[in-house]
Design a protein around this nucleic acid. Sequence first.
DNA 1: GCATCTGTCTACCTACTAGTAGGTAGTGAG
DNA 2: CTCACTACCTACTAGTAGGTAGACAGATGC
Lengths: 207, 207
Amino acid sequence: MSDATSIESSRSTRDQILDEALHCFAEKGYEGTSLNDIAAGVGIRRPSLLHHFPSKEALYGDVFERLLSDWLERLDAAVAMTAVGWDKAELVLRACLDLFAETPDYVRIMRREALDGGVHLGIDLSGVLRPFFDSAVEYLESQMQQGIFQVHDARHLLITGYGALLTYFSDSPFVDGLIDEDAMAAKNIYNHQEHVIGFFRSALLKS
Amino acid sequence: MSDATSIESSRSTRDQILDEALHCFAEKGYEGTSLNDIAAGVGIRRPSLLHHFPSKEALYGDVFERLLSDWLERLDAAVAMTAVGWDKAELVLRACLDLFAETPDYVRIMRREALDGGVHLGIDLSGVLRPFFDSAVEYLESQMQQGIFQVHDARHLLITGYGALLTYFSDSPFVDGLIDEDAMAAKNIYNHQEHVIGFFRSALLKS
DNA sequence: GCATCTGTCTACCTACTAGTAGGTAGTGAG
DNA sequence: CTCACTACCTACTAGTAGGTAGACAGATGC
C-alpha cells in the first residue's frame, strides 16, 4: 500500500500540500500566497490544510527545511568527491546547477528569502550556509596561493558566483523576455550551464 | 519656494510618498507593503495618500517608472561615451555599479519584479531593457570576433553579468550574514565593485 | 465677503486573510 | 457494536487590506 502506483493521489495529502506550497511560495512569495490558494491547488479546503500544518508560517518553514536539506545534501555529496583544483570547483558548480535546473522553485524561494533577509523563517539562512561559504573561501584561497587559480577576493568571488548561478533560474520570467525564448527549455538550460562553467573557468584558471 | 531648503518637509508630499513607497516596496515587496505603512512613513493617513495617487498599483507604477528612467539615463550616458574594447565594458559596468550603490532600493525592487515576472506592472520590464540587451550582445560579439574578448555566449554572458551585478545589492541582508559585516558599508561596496570589475576583466580579456 | 480649490481628516464600505469551533463521514481494533 | 481516530467539511471569528464619502481647515482669487 506504500509503493504501489495507485490510480490517483498516490502521494499523501501532506506531501501534496508541501509540493503545492513550494510552487505557490516560489511563484508569488510568502505574502502573495494565501492558504486558500494552496488548499485549492490540492483540492481541499483551508481548514483541512490546517489540519496537516498548524499555521501558514509552520508550513512555510517545513517547505523551506525540505528545500535546504536537499540542497545541503547535494553540496555535501559534491564536496565529498575526490577531486582537486578546477575539477573540484566544477563538481560543486555542476551539483548546484543540476539541482537548480531540476527544481527552479527552490531557487526562487531562496532568492525571495535572501531578499527579505529571512523574516519569514525562524532559521538564519546565511547562518546555515555559512560553513560551506567559509570552507569554500578556504579552498579558493589555497588554490590561489598555489598559483592554480587567478587571484581574486575569495569572499566576493563566491557572492558573485552565487548571484550568477541563481539568477538565470530565479529570474527566468525576465530572462524569457530578454532572449525571446523559454529560458527553462532543456536546450537553453544546457547552454546556460555550459556557459557558466566556461565563464568561471576563464576567470579562475590562468592563460 | 521651490529650491529653498525650508525648515522641514522641503519636498512636496507627493515626492515624499514616492520616496517612502520606493523604500517600502524594496524592503517588503508589493504584497508585503500596505498603504498604511507608506502613509505612516510620510506622516499622513491612508486616504490622504490616495488623494495624491489613485491606487496602490498606480503608485507602484510611478515608483517603478522613475526608477527605470534613472537607470536608462545612466546607461545611455555610459554608452554614449567614447571608448572601445574593455574600457567601454568597464564604463557600462561602473555606471550600473555606481547607481546600484547609490540607490540599493532600486536593485531590490528590480529583483522582485524580475522574480514576479512583472505582474504588478502594466509595462514589460524585459521589453524596456531589450534594446540595451541587444546592442550589448552585438558589441560583445564584435569584440569576440576581433579577438579582443575571449569567446563566450554573449547572451548568457550578459545574463550572468546581470545576476552578478545585482545580487550583492539585492541580497545584501543575506550577504551580511555570510561575510559577517555590513555589506552596504562604503568599504565593502568599494571592494565588491573592484572585485566585479576585475573578475569580468579576467573572464573577458585574454592572457 | 464669499466661492473655490487643495490637502487632510474620520468614518465607513467590501473583500479577503489566518485561524477556530464543531460536526460528519469512513476506517480499523477489540 | 462501540470506541477512537483521521481527514475532511461548513460556518464562524477577529483583523486587515484597498478604496470611498463627506466634513473640515486653510489658502487663493475675485
